[in-house]
Structures are given as structure tokens and as C-alpha cells.
Design a binder for these strands. Structure first.
Lengths: 208, 208
DNA sequence: AGGTGATCTAACCAGTGGAAAGATAATCTG
DNA sequence: CAGATTATCTTTCCACTGGTTAGATCACCT
């Protein structure tokens, strides 16, 4: 017989394992249905082990949120660097929300975790810099950034909740490219076609 | 002594009383922290009485969501009729989210209730008509409506979560009037100043 | 080798949502 | 008005949850 495949008393890599399990559960059942005990079960440990590593349930969700903001920052950065278009940053935002739904849903439910956590604040601030296009926006950039952020954030959440009419199609990235050009924002770094003009005739068609 | 102020066995008006209590609890502690038992306690009945009237916890939250959509419809309608401006409909949307936070937070957490409930679907459809400006939108109106809805919805949720920079001020309605004009939407019924032109020079200033 | 601290389990607690059985009262039917 | 039916509410129970505590196990350091 094999040499006792008994799980060792110490897991050895429990923290990341619990994080993965948590994201998995949230992805399947939503953040509200996630329980410490179910997460611990999937990682093969007692629920008290999870509480030990994260303090409490909010601590685990805080870690998920922080990881989410870091991942978002990275993807926004990639989009900005690769495409050099503000629109593509917005598309990347929506893509992140859809492809990392578990993280996204936790990030924007601050009552579930500790939004004042240092790690979270840091990661969120880094993402905000990319969303506003600059780390020290003036009043106009601030309002324009808020408009852009609001639009893609609203689009992403409405999509995730199934609140968008199905005639718009079922590809959230494509929907973003159709809808976002209704925003008339003076692009800070790129010289693309004026979104306002493009939107004028009878609404942006495909807008590719 | 008074004739036995003992609570009668039958409450007589329990359903609305439970609804009010639920909204109160959610307003204080958020939808995730609402418990059937706490709601029942505030209404002075056992938690099984609440379950009897609403089937289960999701049933209670379904009723809250339906009520919320009806209230939203009414306020959007008032704003449209009174101001005859598309912008003011958006402002009314944000005002609703802030002043009826409990309802709003439930409405957009479909995992907490039964979004397919007939009453909810009906009430939500009525609100959608006002948000799109017409009950049979063409492709352009659909995209424009989605853009407008996304913007105000994103603005409202970001505001509620404390994700908007504080330099924008602390009056969400005023913020909406500053931010929303970045949208260039051909207004269907009113002939206001072209938002696009107004936004051009260096961003809309106050936009009153 | 021995001790120290980190990691994990077991056991317990109060609180939760749901279901079932029964108590109470309002209403219907004759 | 009496008796039966139905609607409403309570009590009680169950499995589950998050959090706490005491103790078991083990890695590591000197």
C-alpha cells in the first residue's frame, strides 16, 4: 500500500490556497453565499485555520479585494500601453469585471470587507491613477475621469446583473465599444478621431 | 389600569410593517446584514411569521426590490414631467439611489432576491421605459440610453461606495450635473443646448 | 536535544434561515 | 348563531454559520 497518503498536519501553503478557494466559491455562488467553512472545506482544513490566517471572514474578503485591485491595475496598464487609447482602457475595465467577476463583485461591496485596509487603499489608489489618466488631475480631468469611470463601471455592473437589453448583444467588450463613444472626453495623450463628431450623425455605428 | 395593552395575536397589518422594518434594517446595516429574525423582532413578531408572509428571506427582499422599482419609476416620471430635460431624469436617478439607498442596494443585488419574479419584472420594465425615453427604442436610442443609464448608475454606485474623489464635492446631485454633460446624447424631445458643444472648450463648467 | 513559536484541530457558543406542528382568531356557510 | 374552514402567528426543532478558546502537531533555531 502507498505510504500513508494522509494529509500532513501543516498545509504548507494555506493562505494562497484559501484565497483561490474563496475566489472559486464566489465565482460559483456569489460573494453573499461564500462561507468560511465552505472555503476551508475546499482547501481541506478546518474553518478555524482560515480564521487564523485572515483574522475573520472580512479579512479573507479584504485579501480578495486587494488582489482584485492589483490585477485590475495591471490589466488597465497593459491596455493603456498596448493600445494607447483611452477607450481601450475602458474596454479593459469591463473585460476585467466580466472575466474576474468574483474579484470585481467583492471590490465594489465594501460592506463585505475592510476598505480602509492599507493594502487595499494602496492597490485602489494605483488603479485610480490609471482611470483618471494622471496622478494629479485638475478639475476638468477629474470630472472627465469620473464620467468615464462611471460609464464603464455602470456598464459592467449592469451587464453582470443582466440589466442591459439583449438587443445590445452578448459581448460586453463590444457593447463597450458601441456605448462608450457617447462620452465626449478630450483625450489627454492620444489624437484619435473626435468621439463627439463620430457620435453625431445618428449615433456611433460599431465605432471600430 | 389600561385594558391590557397586550399585543393581539394577529398583527393585522404585518406585511407592510415587515417591509418597513426590512428597509430600516437595510438602511442601517446594509442588505447583507439584514436578518429575518431582526426584522421580525422590530415588527414584534416571530421570525416564522415573516417567513409565512414572504415565503423566505429572498421573498422579503423581492418585495423590497419591487417596491424600489415602483418608487424609482415614479420619481423618474416626476422628473421628466416637471423639468422636461433628460439630464434631470439622470439627476433624479442618482437622487433616488442616495435618498432610498436601502431599496437601491437591494435592487441591484439580484443574487439576494428573485429577479424573475413577475412583480419585479413588471416594475423594472416600467422604469426601463423612462430610462430609454421610449418603449420601443431603435438601435441608436438603445445605445444612447445604455450610455446614459450606465453613467448615472455607475455614478450612483461609486458614490454610495465612497469611490469618487472628494474633490468633486459631497453633493451627488451636483456631481451628476457636472459629470453627466460629458455625455453627448441627441435629446429626443427637448431642444436644449447641445451638450457636446457645451462640453467642448475645457469641459463643462458647472453646467447649470 | 530541547525549547519556542507558528500552524492547525476540536469543541463550543450564539445567531441564522427554514420547516413542521400546533395555537389562535377571523371569516365563511349553514 | 353554531360549526367548520381558513388565515395568521408561535413554538420548537434542525443544520449551518462565524468567531473563540484550549490544546495538538510540527518546523525551526540554538
Amino acid at each position: 500500500m502507498p505510504p500513508q497518503p494522509t494529509r500532513p498536519y501543516h498545509h504548507g501553503d494555506l493562505r494562497p490556497a484559501l484565497l483561490r478557494a474563496a475566489v472559486e466559491v464566489i465565482g460559483q455562488a456569489g460573494p453573499a453565499a461564500m462561507s468560511l467553512r465552505e472555503v476551508a472545506r475546499r482547501a481541506g482544513v478546518s474553518h478555524a485555520a482560515a480564521a487564523y490566517h485572515f483574522g475573520d471572514k472580512a479579512g479573507l474578503l479584504t485579501a480578495v479585494a486587494a488582489q482584485g485591485y492589483r490585477m485590475l491595475t495591471e490589466e488597465l496598464q497593459n491596455a493603456r500601453d498596448a493600445r494607447r487609447s483611452f477607450l481601450e482602457v475602458g474596454v479593459a475595465y469591463v473585460r476585467f469585471a466580466v472575466s474576474h467577476r468574483a474579484h470585481f463583485e467583492v471590490m465594489y461591496r465594501p460592506e463585505l470587507y475592510r476598505p480602509d485596509d492599507a493594502e487595499v487603499r494602496e492597490a485602489r489608489a494605483a488603479a485610480a491613477v490609471l482611470l483618471y489618466g494622471t496622478s494629479s488631475p485638475d478639475a476638468g480631468q477629474l470630472a472627465a475621469g469620473a464620467a468615464a469611470w462611471s460609464l464603464v463601471h455602470g456598464l459592467a455592473t449592469l451587464w453582470l446583473n443582466g440589466n442591459l437589453p439583449e438587443q445590445l448583444g452578448n459581448d460586453p467588450e463590444e457593447i463597450t465599444r458601441i456605448v462608450a463613444p457617447y462620452l465626449s472626453i478630450p483625450e489627454p495623450m492620444t489624437a484619435t478621431t473626435d468621439a463627439c463628431e463620430r457620435a453625431r450623425p445618428n449615433g456611433p455605428t460599431k465605432a471600430r
